[in-house]
Amino acid sequence: MSTPDTPHRPIPSRMAIGGHPLHPMLIHFPVAALLALVGTDTGYLLTEDPFWSRAGVWLAGVGAAGGWFSGIVGLIDLVSVRPIRRLVTAWCHALVAVMLLSLASFNWLLRISTDDHGAVIMPAGLVLTLLSAALTAAAGLLGGRLVYEHAVGVDVPVDTR
């Protein structure tokens, strides 16, 4: 059994362009949007300026839609690459991501279902936003473990000495 200090054989991604895995490239915008949503919700609560609630609708939408797109790419890797399928960390990452996307999608649908976007921020929208931020951090931690501890999607140069 390997430890974090033991080098792993790299596990290539099936969903890649020129050897560069797509999932890690696609996830940055949805993550940024869902974390920025904490700021817009806080901005609305402090100022009651409708700008912040409108911005929150857009950030929730980008976070949810972009997350689903990136998640589908990650799911294809999970189910089609046997060494990834064998990693408990990969399944935990996927489970947390599904919970995150469910909350983020519900948060977005809650916000677009009314013309008064600010009315849904307190308390339901803010709770969903904070839970989404916490799950984003957990999914990121697990995704990082996949890369740094299990070398998923990493191209490791061969030592030719």
Score class of each variant (00 low, 15 high):
112 I>V: 15
160 T>P: 10
20 H>T: 15
152 V>W: 06
10 P>Q: 14
135 L>G: 02
139 A>D: 02
24 P>C: 04
106 F>A: 13
133 A>P: 00
87 L>Y: 02
145 R>M: 15
102 S>V: 11
149 E>R: 15
73 V>G: 06
104 A>Y: 04
78 L>C: 02
49 D>A: 14
51 F>G: 11
114 T>D: 10
81 V>L: 12
104 A>I: 04
63 G>D: 03
29 F>P: 12
63 G>S: 07
113 S>L: 10
54 R>L: 11
92 C>W: 14
65 A>H: 06
64 A>M: 02
18 G>Q: 04
73 V>C: 08
87 L>E: 00
21 P>W: 02
100 L>D: 02
99 M>I: 15
32 A>L: 13
88 V>N: 07
87 L>Q: 01
122 M>G: 11
68 W>G: 03
132 S>P: 01
64 A>D: 01
68 W>L: 05
13 S>V: 05
129 T>C: 00
94 A>D: 07
4 P>E: 09
30 P>G: 10
33 A>V: 06
99 M>D: 14
53 S>F: 03
68 W>E: 03
127 V>A: 09
70 S>T: 13
80 S>K: 14
86 R>V: 03
123 P>W: 12
112 I>C: 07
116 D>W: 09
119 A>G: 05
160 T>V: 15
74 G>W: 06
36 A>H: 01
36 A>R: 05
116 D>T: 10
47 T>W: 07
7 P>M: 02
36 A>D: 04
111 R>P: 06
1 M>P: 13
97 A>F: 03
137 A>P: 03
115 D>H: 15
1 M>K: 12
25 M>Y: 11
151 A>E: 13
41 D>M: 03
95 L>V: 15
21 P>R: 01
155 D>P: 10
36 A>C: 07
7 P>V: 03
15 M>R: 09
39 G>A: 03
8 H>N: 12
138 A>R: 09
139 A>H: 02
72 I>A: 11
161 R>C: 12
112 I>M: 07
85 R>W: 12
143 G>N: 11
21 P>F: 01
153 G>R: 03
3 T>R: 10
35 L>Q: 02
108 W>N: 03
59 L>Q: 00
41 D>G: 08
94 A>E: 06
39 G>I: 00
7 P>H: 05
37 L>V: 00
37 L>S: 01
96 V>Y: 08
53 S>Q: 04
38 V>Q: 01
7 P>K: 08
161 R>Y: 14
25 M>W: 13
82 R>A: 14
76 I>D: 08
120 V>E: 12
66 G>E: 07
16 A>N: 10
34 L>F: 07
10 P>C: 10
156 V>S: 02
158 V>D: 09
28 H>Q: 14
2 S>G: 13
155 D>V: 14
158 V>A: 13
100 L>I: 01
87 L>P: 04
45 L>G: 01
11 I>F: 05
48 E>P: 09
73 V>Y: 06
50 P>W: 11
14 R>F: 09
145 R>G: 13
78 L>K: 00
102 S>I: 11
69 F>S: 13
47 T>D: 04
114 T>L: 12
31 V>W: 09
67 G>R: 03
148 Y>F: 15
97 A>N: 11
158 V>F: 05
124 A>W: 05
142 L>W: 10
28 H>P: 14
91 W>A: 00
50 P>A: 13
103 L>N: 04
161 R>K: 11
112 I>K: 06
119 A>C: 11
160 T>L: 15
138 A>H: 08
67 G>N: 10
